[in-house]
Design a protein around this nucleic acid. Sequence first.
DNA 1: ATGGCCGCCCTAGGCGGA
Length: 263
Amino acid sequence: MKIATWNINSVRLREPIVLKFLTEQNPDVLCLQETKSPDDKFPHDGFEAIGYTHRAIRGEKGYNGVAILSKHPIENSAHHDFCQKGDCRHLSAKINGITIHNFYVPAGGDIPDREKNEKFGHKLDFVDEMTSWFGKKGKAPAGPSILVGDLNIAPQEHDVWSHKQLLKIVSHTPIEVEKLLAAQASRAWVDVARHFVPEDEKLYSWWSYRAKDWEKADKGRRLDHIWVTPDLADALKECETLKPARGWEKPSDHAPVIATLKV
DNA sequence: ATGGCCGCCCTAGGCGGA
């Protein structure tokens, strides 16, 4: 099973490169974030035509939005309303007996202080709720699971271009990292990218639109993650970040991350 | 931090992204 995650920053605008990605990489499942499309305007037809005949979508106008495209039947899909905002930041689907969670964690605004910036508070509360929901007393579904998405936190020193310069920048502050690691511990989730790439090697999935030359500057962050429950760890075969996709025509600022499992 | 770019929306400046 090949599963991919990609923050697409408008699925309608970027339908052509999503189709290119699906055609070239042929994943079984693709989880999208920031689709920025209400459900009645989701571009189903192109995905249907190339074999992604099973889809779960949860979108809203203008912001957020998540979708799961699959070549295999979706046995059931569900949504958990983190922070009770009624927004579109989580969607789960059971495919081939595995529960897949697709997350778009709040970005958190600019100031890393919940007293001065309520978006930062929302982000921290969202990740706390992930920890409790997946914890022993939580209501998240049991069994083999894969958690993917734009978690908007780069936890490790070499998940950012400069650990020192980003310590006070939202996405890499110690409080965010602490909370993300707690969420990871809630089910002993295995960080798939780091399962294959040593911790002292730089690894990014996002490069800002603002850099004049994103590739040359290479000031990236690893914000997009794939986690699996420990019962799936032995099945892990490979994990790739498709960096060239960041340079495709009219790209997203995120690159897709792809994991392959022998299941 | 590079705050220089993107995409969305009651089409145009404001909001959100990170």
